[in-house]
Every structure is written in structure tokens, then in C-alpha cells.
Computed example of a mutant assay.
Amino acid sequence: MTNLQRTGLERPGRMSYNADVTRNIHHYLTVDRDWGPLEIKQKGSRFIAFLSSAPDREAAEERIGALRDSHHDATHVCFAWRMTNGEETEHRYNDDGEPGGTAGLPIFNEVRRKDYVNVVLAVVRYFGGVKLGTGGLARAYGRAARLVMEASRPVRVILTEPAELTFPFDLTGEVMQVLRRLELKITGQEHTPAGTRLEVLVPRGRMTELQMALLEAGGGRISLTAGPPET
């Protein structure tokens, strides 16, 4: 096995790309900054792991390309990414020339084990002169990936839906009390001759709870419309 000069292009290797429908997601785990590099050594080979946040697949692929450019003398740059838009989760992993199933899949398994999404996890290998065999490769890639995953701190992202409230001025106190109790974020406000219009973000699955709280607070005088405001 010899080192290859890299140009930012992906080499042939086993690749998996898959998408799954995952409805009714209310929140997910991710990271909000880069973690790594963290390195292990196995029989002279260096395995260097990097974990990054990526909002979408294009950003993940750009991150992989940047790693290939900065480690152009590495033997392999193997990776996995996993993305969600709140309705569908998709993933991809690649062995980058290593024997099939020995690099990308062990890396992806670590992402899935922590249930992270909107992340890209890469392990850069510098060959040390001794072949590790398929089992040794899988263990080394998995161990490097786990090292950086265990070092990371997850961020919980709560998915929200927009809603609009309209109410007369004399119910302002009651509405604000409901919003504070449910910890809802106000994103827009407008005063009209008839009263106040508020735009808020409601965590998924809690629209009915908000509706019932407003009904109790305003006796039917507070209007709630789910969805973005009309423009």
C-alpha cells in the first residue's frame, strides 16, 4: 500500500447512501462546533478523527473536500454523514479505497450509536507500513471514530412550527403569561386598532397545548393560527 497524492477528489470505494422517513421528530441531537483532531496509532498507521456540524449534505461534502485538501498526502480519508430536515433522515458513508465495510460503516455506526444528525465524521489514515487486515481496519476506524464522538458534547435542537396569535389589548397580560409558562419565543409583533398580533415559534407536538391554554386564558377571544403568517 502506498500513499497517493490527493486533489480533493474522492477515490473509488464502497459507498452507501440511504434515506429514511422519520416522521413526528420533535427534537434531535447534534454538535455546534468542531471536535478533534483526535488520533490513535495502530501498528504504525495513524488514524485521525474529526467531527463537525453540517446543516446539510452539501456542507458535509464540502467539509470532506476540505479535509482531503488539507491532508492531501494521507492514504485514505473515510467518512460518514447523517442529516435530517425534520421529516426525513439520510446518511452516506464511504471507505475511500479501503476494503469494503472496514472504514465507512464502522464510522457511521458510531454516529448512529450516539444518534447524532446534521454531522459529518471523518477519519484520516496515514499508512504505517503494516497491513492490519479487514478486522483490524474495522476496529481501528471504529475506535478512532468513537474517540472523537465520546469527546463531543451533544446539543439538543428542538424543532418548532410558526403560529400567529391575535387578541384584544385587554388580554395582553394573559397572553404573555401563557407564553412565559410554555417558554415560547416571540418572533414578530404588530399593533392594530383591533388589538395585537404576535408571531411565535411553538415546539412540535405542543400546538394543542397552546390552544387549550389560550382558550382557558381568553375565553375564546384569542385567535391561534398555525403556520407562517400570510404575506
Rank of each mutant, 00 (worst) to 15 (best):
A103Q: 06
K41S: 15
F79M: 05
M1G: 12
T225R: 14
V155E: 12
R204A: 01
Q5Y: 14
R6Q: 13
P168F: 04
G86C: 06
E61H: 12
H191A: 09
L179N: 04
K131P: 02
H191C: 04
E161R: 07
A138Q: 07
Q177N: 10
T196Q: 05
P99C: 05
P162A: 04
R57Y: 01
H191F: 15
A194L: 14
T187G: 03
Q189C: 01
A138V: 09
G142W: 08
A19M: 07
H76S: 06
L137Q: 12
R156W: 06
V123Y: 03
T7K: 03
V148T: 08
L132E: 03
G218T: 00
L137H: 10
K131D: 13
T172E: 14
R112K: 15
I107G: 05
H26F: 09
Y141S: 03
T22E: 11
V120L: 08
V130M: 13
N3S: 12
E164D: 06
R180K: 11
A74H: 02
G220N: 00
P168L: 03
L29Q: 11
L214V: 00
A59M: 09
I25R: 14
S223I: 00
Q189D: 01
A66V: 02
V117E: 06
Q177S: 13
L215G: 06
G218Y: 00
G8R: 05
P55A: 14
H26Q: 15
T7A: 02
I25E: 15
H27V: 03
M1A: 13
L38T: 11
L210K: 00
R180T: 11
E199D: 06
H91V: 01
A59E: 13
V111A: 05
R11E: 05
F127A: 07
L67A: 04
R221S: 04
R23W: 05
A66D: 06
R181S: 13
P99A: 04
Y126G: 08
S16C: 08
T134H: 11
R181I: 01
T208A: 12
R68Y: 04
V124Y: 03
M149P: 02
C78M: 05
E10M: 14
R204D: 01
H27A: 15
G36E: 01
L214Q: 00
G129D: 10
L179A: 09
R181E: 14
T89E: 12
T160N: 07
K114Y: 13
T160A: 11
T30H: 06
R6T: 09
P162W: 04
